[in-house]
Amino acid sequence: MPRPEAEPVIEVRGLVKRYRESDRPAVDGLDLTVRAGEFVALLGPNGAGKTTTLSILTAALTKTGGTVRVAGFDLDTQAREIRANIGILFQNPSLDLRLTAEENLRFHASLYGIYGYRPAFRLMPRAYREQVRALARLLGIGDQLFERVEKFSGGMRRKLEIVRSLMHHPRVLFLDEPTQGLDPVSRQSLWDHLRSVQRTEGTTILLTTHYIEEAEGADRVFIVDHGRLLTQGTPESLKVQIADRYLLLDAADRGQLLRDLAGSPVTPREDGLLQVAFDGATPQALLARLTVPLTVLRIHVPSLEEAYLELVGREAAGGEAS
């Protein structure tokens, strides 16, 4: 978790994107602030505007309105400086399948001006060769470095794209659904590596994902829908803020239990248990009031998924009602 006073590295104010053929904006007045070294997740259903937002922040897509600053540069006037300071993992693969893994990396390194282009790996500077070998080994594609990418599995291609996106040591790394199509082992190794990059290099990471468990690992989560920011916070604070936290209780002396719970919001459930909502991080205060021996005690702490579904469900219901 970065220091709270770290400088903002992504600042978005009133971002709007309206596609020509669409009658409603894909992004509708979005505000975001991400601090240096943070790992944030943009979470939302399909069509929420996540990829559109990311495309605008990476200067790959024009915006309709609003202001954007990334890595200290203004998108309107310093798009090239922004590009030099960011790394991107696109939702759709962007490798040249006809080239080898190393040729793809060499091409990227030359495009970003990290190393001068040479027509063969052995002619490239030693620093390049060492960097490429080390990164490839780290992600487990060291043996396939000189094979054509068309022979790679989906997971290997994704790993290669990650190696590539980190070659120029970007200040901000944008990941658009990075683990889509990866098996659980590959996903885990990918996250281990990205976490280590965030820790050791202080890289800011902005992720869009459908996997809520990936967002659980973020420092902060932005939940968006219909191009608007619904809420934001740490995964823990969102759970507290959005979803109900409650106890499920029962006792042989149900009458005494109800008397002990007087003043608390108690809801009888179909399964016969009493559901009692509690405030704060723990139910300690509530439990301390009970004098009756309990036959059932279950603490329900919501997951981020529940919080997310609750919030997006509320939005959908609100949208239908209006």
Partner: peptide, 14 residues
């Protein structure tokens, strides 16, 4: 069409 131009056009190059 294959997505490769994304890699080229996000590079800090004219």
């Amino acid at each position: 069409e294959t997505g490769f131009t994304q890699e080229i056009f996000v590079a800090p190059v004219s």
